[in-house]
């Protein structure tokens, strides 16, 4: 039943996610810089980049069509829609019955679809290459995600995110069950693949032949680029929230009181920081895989997901 301030909390948590996302990516970059023995940009650097980009002019190719100019909005809208569905601060929220984990996955696919089309629109070879690689990686990570959802839904009895969170909170032993741990591993690899992090894709590369995500946005500038970058950063935050709140849900508010929400915010920040540190260390440690080794990595995550399912079946 939707609580009176449920909608306010839902909108507030989406706004919070939007505001925190650049900071999260800034933290990851700062940590990587320190691990590279240099000072690096301050943690709030991405905010400054966004402010600059919104003030710059947009240059559009003469070959591009309306799709090129609409794609950043579609990508941003679909990512914000996902932010409305993911349990960032509290469950259950009124939008919980609007979309479940499958809706989240396919809304992200909607954004990827339009971004890939926008890569092909200006007619440049880089964009086409980026689109081709991005769709390949997205398609190959679909089975892993579906099986991980299956594993989570088996335990929780529902694919709705609020239900999964509630069930894990009610039954803490499930959180350390082999099924959940294997599903976490599988989803972590998918997080790397979907967000274009090492070892799948280097977000800081400027060698076009090594790019996947960056190649699609080479033509974008100004406010369009700002929207796309912000969506990508928001996607990282949402994946981290999913990893944190689905598998380690303690701290998520179940009642809508200021105390509970404050505690939820604190635990969310803690989970984000932990995951950011883990990602930064991991990215420093591994090298980027060449493109045709990426399916092997995704196959490993698929096997983890299959094991998660099998274990969940046997344990029931």
């Amino acid at each position: 039943m939707p609580l009176p301030t449920g909608y306010t909390v839902a909108i507030a948590q989406t706004a919070l996610a939007l505001l925190l996302a650049p900071g999260l990516v800034g933290l990851i970059r700062w940590l990587k810089a320190r691990l590279q023995n240099r000072r690096g940009a301050p943690v709030w650097q991405p905010y400054l980049e966004l402010r600059k980009l919104f003030a710059k002019e947009v240059v559009v190719s003469s070959n591009a069509s309306w799709l090129f100019r609409a794609a950043p909005f579609v990508v941003f809208a679909s990512t914000v829609a996902v932010a409305l569905l993911v349990p960032v601060l509290a469950v259950p929220l009124p939008f919980d019955s609007v979309g479940d984990l499958l809706v989240v996955v396919y809304l992200l696919l909607l954004g990827t679809f339009f971004l890939a089309l926008a890569g092909l629109d200006p007619g440049s070879a880089f964009g086409g290459m980026g689109s081709s690689r991005e769709m390949t990686v997205a398609a190959l990570s679909e089975p892993t995600v579906a099986l991980a959802i299956f594993a989570l839904a088996l335990g929780a009895g529902s694919t709705n995110l609020g239900q999964i969170v509630a069930r894990t909170m009610a039954d803490p032993a499930a959180a350390v069950s082999p099924g959940y741990l294997l599903a976490f591993g599988a989803l972590f690899v998918v997080t790397l693949a979907e967000n274009g992090r090492l070892p799948v894709d280097n977000p800081a590369t400027h060698l076009e032949l090594t790019m996947i995500h960056e190649a699609m946005i080479l033509e974008y500038s100004g406010r369009y680029l700002a929207l796309i970058e912000w969506s990508a950063w928001l996607k990282v935050l949402l994946f981290f929230s999913l990893l944190g709140n689905l598998f380690v849900p303690w701290g998520v508010a179940t009642v809508l009181t200021w105390a509970a929400l404050g505690w939820a915010l604190a635990t969310l920040l803690a989970k984000l920081v932990v995951l950011a540190v883990a990602l930064a260390v991991f990215e420093t440690r591994v090298a980027k895989l060449r493109l045709f080794r990426v399916p092997e990595l995704l196959a490993v995550s698929f096997v983890l997901a299959v094991l998660a399912i099998t274990v969940s079946f046997l344990v029931r």
Binding site: A55, E57, V59, V60, S61, P122, G123, S124, E219, G222
Partner: peptide, 13 residues
């Protein structure tokens, strides 16, 4: 008040 400037140019190649 984001910038609304737009310019058409060649595809970057």
């Amino acid at each position: 008040r984001a910038s609304r400037a737009l310019r058409v140019s060649d595809t970057w190649g």
